[in-house]
Amino acid sequence: MAELQLDKIDLDILRLLQSQGRLSNQELAERVGLSPSPCSRRVKALEESGFISGYATILSAEHFNLSLTAYVQVRLDKHAKDILESFEAKVSEYDEVQECCLLTGSDADYQLKVLVADMNQFKLFLLDKLTTHPHIAGVHSCFVLKQVKSQTSIPLPETS
């Protein structure tokens, strides 16, 4: 399948869906200057080509009493492929972990974004889950005092 070449209308569709994902096809079509059928075909093509990877509802953590965010840097004692894969598989099971990134240019091997209710829940997560992995050599945690910016949209190229 040939890679889809994005034009101004495709980029406009993507911008609108990133910021207002609940727009109906009719509303989306009106805003980008298309009739509903071609708009629907474009959205389907954007989905099939992977430009749109999914749809989600973003919940408010505060409404679920999840008010403590921690960034946890993890250093492993060995870097064999099976050890990295084992750690990644285990971390993927933890609902508290919002993100897990393999790093370079740092003393840490991974950085986790962890969301819990309070310090006691963080302690339980850290001691009962995370540090039970046999190859963890060190953990360093930082706690968020204030979230200055949070977004789910990605920057798209400007249209001419």
Rank of each mutant, 00 (worst) to 15 (best):
G105D: 02
Q151R: 14
C101I: 15
E85T: 14
E93Y: 05
P134E: 11
D95S: 08
K129V: 02
S92P: 00
V139K: 03
D118H: 07
E99G: 00
V148K: 10
L130R: 01
D109N: 09
D107R: 06
K78I: 13
V144R: 02
D128W: 01
G105P: 03
K129T: 00
L103S: 04
V114I: 09
S86E: 13
V144W: 06
Q121H: 12
A117G: 07
S86K: 14
V91G: 03
E93C: 05
A117E: 09
K81I: 14
Q98Y: 03
H140R: 13
L84Y: 15
K129F: 00
H140F: 11
A80M: 11
Q151A: 10
D109A: 04
A117Y: 04
Q151E: 13
L115W: 02
D77C: 12
C101N: 10
K149F: 12
K129C: 01
L126C: 02
T152H: 13
S153R: 12
V114Y: 01
T131Q: 09
V97A: 01
K78T: 15
C101D: 08
Y94M: 10
V148T: 12
I136P: 00
Q111T: 13
I83Y: 07
Q111E: 13
S92W: 04
C142K: 15
C142W: 06
V116H: 02
C100W: 00
F122N: 01
L103T: 10
A80H: 13
K90N: 03
E85F: 12
F87H: 04
D109M: 02
A89T: 15
D82A: 13
Q98F: 04
Q121T: 07
V139P: 03
